[in-house]
């Protein structure tokens, strides 16, 4: 090895001598650059040469497509050379398999999946009517019927968006509607099914408890109503949900402060029952300190803090982190 070591020392000496002069450094930099460029270029050419010699380039080449996909750049036309007018199209609803006009698909799907503002009312109506045996309204309500409601509520819907954003306005709307005798149908929600959320006030404690294993249940300050989203509802925190249930137990015998509760059944889900019961059970056992990227939409606001670090998040929770900006985009 000493042979090598000697040569290394010699090299280092020569190097120091060389770089002591700044003009040498510049000249050397230039030369080294040129060498590197030569070598990189050689490498690129080798890549091509190799793929040609090994046949990969042929394999890659294949038979070109004969159709032209050239972009069209003419006024009044889109890039495909088509006119800029909307043609009507149909699609098959994945939920019910019916054919639906594409431009009304979202509306349809909402009702179809039982999520719309009207869905609960329609469902309640259905239940109420089937038990009263009114032939005209039994079975599936036609889409047209719903559309009438739709346009009415659209007009009324002047975004009363409060701090908790988009969903709340949905709930507030039903306040209008329920008290509004002018709406189509005019059925009264409250005569519906005994243990449904709309009848919360009159339910027994056991039933309330049962209900609260299925829905978020937090009372909105603004609308005084229970949130009927799932237990994973991002708008409210686990603490709030716990409080709510604790409240129920505490005022079990006494007079509850739930007199003014008005329940919106928009988002009540049947299916989540077991999962949600499990979730509730787990709360007492673990405090999750993990943040998910879906939780932490970063914000400059220092008053909001992630769930992980500050457990006293005072009802802001995820809601404050996620921008509740909900610009309305009306369709066409």
């Amino acid at each position: 090895m000493s042979g090598i070591d000697e040569r290394v020392d010699e090299l280092n000496k020569k190097f120091l001598e060389f770089v002591s002069k700044p003009e040498n450094v510049d000249a050397a930099s230039k030369e080294i650059y040129e060498d590197l460029l030569d070598e990189v270029m050689m490498g690129f050419v080798f890549d091509v040469h190799r793929t040609v010699k090994t046949g990969s380039s042929d394999v890659e080449e294949g038979i070109p497509d004969d159709e032209s996909y050239a972009i069209v750049d003419l006024p009044g036309l889109d890039v495909f050379g088509q006119q800029a007018i909307k043609k009507s199209q149909d699609c098959a609803c994945p939920n019910c398999d019916r054919g639906v006009a594409a431009c009304r698909f979202a509306t349809h799907l909402e009702k179809c999946m039982g999520m719309g503002r009207n869905s609960s009312r329609i469902a309640s109506r259905r239940i109420a009517n089937s038990s009263k045996d009114l032939s005209t309204l039994s079975g599936v309500l036609s889409d047209d019927d719903d559309d009438v409601d739709w346009s009415l509520t659209n007009d009324k819907r002047k975004r009363r968006k409060d701090r908790n954003g988009l969903k709340k306005s949905k709930q507030s709307k039903s306040v209008h509607r329920n008290g509004d005798t002018g709406s189509a149908g005019g059925e009264n929600n409250h005569t519906s099914n005994e243990n449904s959320p709309s009848n919360y006030e009159n339910m027994s404690v056991e039933d309330k408890r049962a209900l609260l294993t299925q829905i978020c249940g937090v009372v909105s300050e603004h609308t005084k109503k229970l949130c009927t989203r799932s237990m994973r509802c991002p708008q409210h925190t686990d603490d709030q949900r716990k409080d709510m249930r604790a409240n129920l137990e505490a005022t079990n015998n006494g007079h509850s402060n739930q007199d003014n509760l008005h329940v919106d059944v928009d988002t009540y889900e049947e299916g989540d029952g077991q999962n949600l019961r499990d979730a509730l059970a787990r709360w007492d056992l673990e405090v999750s300190s993990h943040s998910s990227p879906a939780d932490s939409a970063s914000t400059t606001s220092t008053s909001s803090s992630s769930r992980k670090r500050d457990s006293k998040s005072k009802g802001k929770g995820k809601g404050s982190k996620r921008d509740r900006g909900s610009p309305i985009s009306q369709g066409d």
């Binding site: 090299l11 020569k14 190097f15 001598e17 060389f18 050397a28 080294i32």
Partner: peptide, 10 residues
């Protein structure tokens, strides 16, 4: 000596 900078970097 001229090859020294190259060699050192290598």
């Amino acid at each position: 000596m001229k090859s020294a900078p190259h060699q050192r970097l290598v």
